[in-house]
Every structure is written in structure tokens, then in C-alpha cells.
Design a binder for these strands. Structure first.
Lengths: 254, 254
DNA sequence: CGACGATTTGAGATCTTTCAACGTTGGTGG
DNA sequence: CCACCAACGTTGAAAGATCTCAAATCGTCG
């Protein structure tokens, strides 16, 4: 962590990087942002099912997940729910719309979750000295958009089995991102409820269960007490089913 | 247009607005960006069906539509196509991923289109003096994300009729944005092919046609020679069908 | 044990796709 | 002017995918 105390050295403003770097090009360093949230943010525990924020509220914080899983969701009057995106350990998420605008989606914990929260105001203060942070926020938004387009394509162009395979692969990779296959932390269990997966791919829980059953009968996945388990040797089969390689953005951002 | 020649006055860098404005808050002025593209960009005509850029290419320009209609699309090996977003007259679009990264979607003209194209390099040069441009790019990205989430919800949670109604309303509003109802330019015809609408809502053209037929029988829309026509008095019915008011983000960005 | 939430199963209803054929339109060349 | 062609829209019927409903099972927690 090398950002400076913003109150002591405002003259540094003149030495900030030139505008060519403050921009949609170049590479962004998301780890610095994570570090800031980790050191400056407040830690909180949130139970499964609870909301970090709800659609219609004004989101004034940015979050870093330490453990657990959070999803962006949108709810409608009739009670339907669409899962828009998943976030796992080490993910940063927030609603980055203009301040004081209510957000159009909720952030809901799919597992018991521990997260650090830093107010946008604090981040803005820190960014006075290190405006590279805005590049990182850009990068975050690009990731969101990329995932959204992937999901749109997945739901719009494909049938149930492929949708399920794609989402399972995505979740699998999300939970095991940066973890060595031989590591004890590497886990083939998918700790997400079937209901949540169903809401992510636009399918009924009942029908999802049928699809899972057929995948189990084909030997691609295991199911123990309702928990999906993907053997490391079978993940390749799943990826073939959904043409996972087509989704280059996945490889780019996770 | 008030941006200055970037080569003459680099000392202006020190007087740029402070970081609080260079940020995800505040209001953005998209009209300035449009003005820049209009004055500095090159005009080109593109036929219906042609691509402005294709997935896998590196996008090095930013575009402003003068007339016509462009869609972001994603194609897969089997020939399926998903329409991700629509852009109309006065819309600005581009792929804002980091430079030299290939884009993951295509921009395809759904109508004969006239557009101004400005290279990102030029924009960057101009932004040296007016870094507020980056705020506008942020705003653009937020619009894309918001639309993507709307579409995800629309496709994931709803049946054919509602999906069609929503997309028709969106296109209708898109083409008539900023045009007075009594104006001669106000047009109740939807000049988009049924095939393109079908690809946007994840439905077969044949089935879309059935849905349109039933909407016609209910008196909600007219169809002349394959062209959909929405009477100004009936648009409210369509909006009721799809609960259009739920999608607050639409009202916010169009 | 009892209550609750989640998963599982089966069967029928409904939605959506596929296939195949036909109609219309607009452009092109003779 | 006409014949022809390609692209798009339209229609009907059967096949397939998905949903709904209802009931059973299972695991967890108090």
C-alpha cells in the first residue's frame, strides 16, 4: 500500500500521471484497489439470503468479498428474481452509477459472507492522490458488462443443458480462481443452491433439477445431498458441452 | 466546442478539474462528446447488414450515429446470433475495453446507417485538455450495463409476449427519443426486421411472428407488409403488458 | 420429535421450436 | 414490361422443451 494521506500533500495533484493513462486504455491494477478497501474499509458478516444493498437504494459503498458469495439480482413485483452476476472471494463489487441515483439491482448473499466495505466518499478522498483508482473502476465496469453479455448470449441462444453447463463452469472457476488444483483449498463442490442457479439461467428449479439429474446419469457431475460436485476430470466435459472457450471474456477477467 | 489544441498548452494539465470530478459521481455531459465526434470524426455510410466492427477485431474508434440503427451482436459457431443492445440516431457507441484487446461482440447495422467515427487516439489527445471526457465514457458504459441487465431480466424472467412488448417499447422510444409527438418526424413504424427483434429476445422468428399476430388480433399493434406499426395511443397498452415502468433505467438513459 | 427449507419425482399443461410450404416484396437483367 | 431471384414474412402442424402443480423425500436446526 503506497497511497499517501490525502490531507497532507495536495501539491501532489500536479504530479499525477498524465491524461493518457487516465483513460480506457492501458492496464489496470485491481490489486491496489483491493488493498485500499481491505485496509480502510469496515469488515462485516452477512448471512445467506440477506442483502448487501437493495434495488431502489442509493449505494454509497464499495465492497470486497473476503469469503462467501454475493449475487447481483433483480426482483419484480410478481416475486420473480433474475440473478445477473456472481461474485466470489476477492471480488470487488458496487453499483457505480452516479451518486444519489438509486440502484436498479440488489446485491444478495448466496452464502454466509464476510466483506469489507469502504464508503465511496473515502475512496474519492484517496483518489485525490491516486487517480489511477478510476482506471480500476473502469476495469470493474468492463468486467460487469462482459459478464452480462456472456449471460445474455447464454440465456438467449441456448437450451437448458448448455446453460446449466456454462453456469456451472463459471461458478466452478469463480470459486477456484487462483487456487492450485493440488491445493487443499481446491474444492469440487458447488456450494450454491439449485434455486439460485435456476434464477441465473432463467429456468425453473424443477426443470434445473431434471437437467442436473440427466447430467448425473451421464456421469458428468455428482450430486450429494443436493450439493453439486464436479470432478476435476469432468470439468472439461462440461466446458465442451457449453463451448466454454467461446467466452473469451471469462478467461480475461476471472 | 471549447476544447483546446492539445499540442499548444500542456501546462494546462495542472489546471484540470480536481479528482473529485474525475469520478463515478456527478453529472456527465454527453453532448460535448457527441460534438467532438461530430466535428473531428469522419463520416461514413454503411449498408444494412454490414458490420461496423466484428467480434475478435480490435476496436480503435468511437462512433456517433447520425441516422440509421446499429446493434451489438454476438455470433457463435453454429450461426446463432444474439442481439445485445440497440443504438439509434444520436447514440454514441464503441467497445471500451483496454486497447489492443479484441472485442467480444460485433456492431452490425440493422438499417442503412450514417455515422461519424473518431479514433480513440484522437479522443485521447483531446482528452489531455478536457479530461471530463472520461466521465462521459463512464456514463456510456453505465448505460450499456443498465441495458444489458434490463435485457437479462426481460429474457430470463418472462414469456414471449412480454419480451416482445418490452423490446417494441424500447425500440419505439429509441427511435422517437427527443422527438415531439406532434412532430412530423414522429414515426409509429418500427423499421427493424422481425429477425433482428427475434434475435434480441431469444426467440425464433417464426414464434415471434405468431406473437405479433396475436398482438395484432388484440388490436395492440398493426402490421403492414411485415412492418410493425404502433399507434401512439396503443403504446401505453404495450407498456402495461411488459410493466415498462419497472425498468427505471430506461427512462434514465434514453 | 417437529418444523422448515431445499431437493426430488411424476404427469399433464403450456410454451417454443422445427420443418416445410407458401406469399409478398423489391431488385435485376433481358 | 416481364421473368426471375433472393430475402423476408406468414401459416399450419407436429415435435420438443419447459413450466406448473402436487406430493414425497431429505437434511438441518431448535
Amino acid at each position: 500500500m503506497h497511497y499517501q494521506n490525502p490531507t497532507t500533500n495536495l501539491s501532489n495533484l500536479a504530479s499525477r500521471p498524465d491524461a493518457r493513462q487516465l483513460d480506457f486504455s492501458g492496464s489496470w491494477d485491481i490489486d491496489s484497489l483491493k488493498q485500499i478497501i481491505l485496509e480502510e474499509g469496515l469488515r462485516s458478516s452477512i448471512q445467506r439470503g440477506k442483502f448487501v444493498f437493495r434495488q431502489g437504494e442509493v449505494v454509497d459503498k464499495i465492497y470486497l468479498i473476503q469469503s462467501g458469495c454475493v449475487a447481483f439480482t433483480r426482483h419484480c413485483a410478481e416475486g420473480h428474481r433474475q440473478v445477473l452476476d456472481f461474485f466470489y472471494r476477492e471480488s470487488v463489487f458496487s453499483d457505480l452509477t452516479e451518486d444519489s441515483r438509486p440502484t436498479t439491482f440488489s446485491a444478495q448473499c448466496l452464502l454466509d459472507t464476510q466483506a469489507y466495505a469502504l464508503s465511496k466518499a473515502s475512496l474519492r478522498r484517496i483518489a485525490t492522490i491516486t487517480p489511477e483508482i478510476f482506471q480500476t473502476l473502469n476495469s470493474l465496469m468492463l468486467r460487469l458488462l462482459s459478464q452480462a453479455y456472456d449471460s445474455l448470449y447464454n440465456i438467449g441462444c441456448r437450451h437448458g443443458v448448455e446453460r446449466v453447463a456454462f453456469t456451472l463452469c463459471k461458478i466452478f472457476d469463480g470459486f477456484n480462481a487462483g487456487i492450485d488444483v493440488d491445493s487443499a483449498r481446491f474444492d469440487c463442490n458447488i456450494p450454491i443452491r439449485q434455486i439460485d442457479i435456476a434464477d441465473a439461467i432463467g429456468v425453473t428449479p424443477v426443470y434445473l433439477n431434471q437437467i442436473l439429474k440427466s447430467l448425473k446419469e451421464d456421469g458428468v457431475i455428482d450430486i450429494n445431498k443436493g450439493t453439486i460436485n464436479i470432478n476435476i476430470n469432468n470439468i472439461k466435459i462440461l466446458k465442451d458441452i457449453c463451448n466454454y472457450e467461446e467466452f473469451s471474456s471469462i478467461k480475461r477477467f476471472i
